[in-house]
Amino acid sequence: MDVRGKRLTLDEFMNTELSVKHYPEMEYNWATGVAITKFLKGLKNGKILGTYCNDCDRTVCPPRMFCEECFNPMNHYVKLPDTGVINTFSLAFIRTDATRREKAEIPAVIDIDGTSISPSGFLHLIDEDVSHDKIKIGMKVKAVWKDEKDRIGDITDIKFFELLEDD
């Protein structure tokens, strides 16, 4: 099979091959919506909110305006504990732009306590100073909040989650 496609060499890429550059600058201002606005306001006040669906009898986090299952409105907001369980985690040695980090940051899915499906929670970070040998799936964690004056109603109002278990 004769397949076509001209492979660019590194030298051509750096020195000789013509290309046109473009630096888009686009700025967005996203509405945070009905449910996530409440969630972010909750974070500003040091609280994690979820929503309860009457029809499905379940509490979920992050909160939503409607239940994706029964498709009815979900307008009963509940305050959940700021603790949870590590559903999964990674030791990330690459930054968002794929450049390398010396010290890993630890993204994790936190299954928030008080929800009724598993997992039900959100993406966040674990304290990057914990020993890598110590951290395990299933460990209990607790939110470490920014000082009240520094909270702005953003997911980063929680600095990270710390391990609750010492063993």
């Binding site: 999964t88 930054r95 968002t96 993406l123 970070l125 997911i155």
Partner: peptide, 19 residues
């Protein structure tokens, strides 16, 4: 709204799922 401010990388979610 609640994930990009954490500075994720695509490989994160694969790592989380694989783990």
């Amino acid at each position: 709204l609640i994930e990009r401010p954490l500075g994720p990388n695509l490989v994160w979610i694969f790592a989380l799922e694989m783990k």
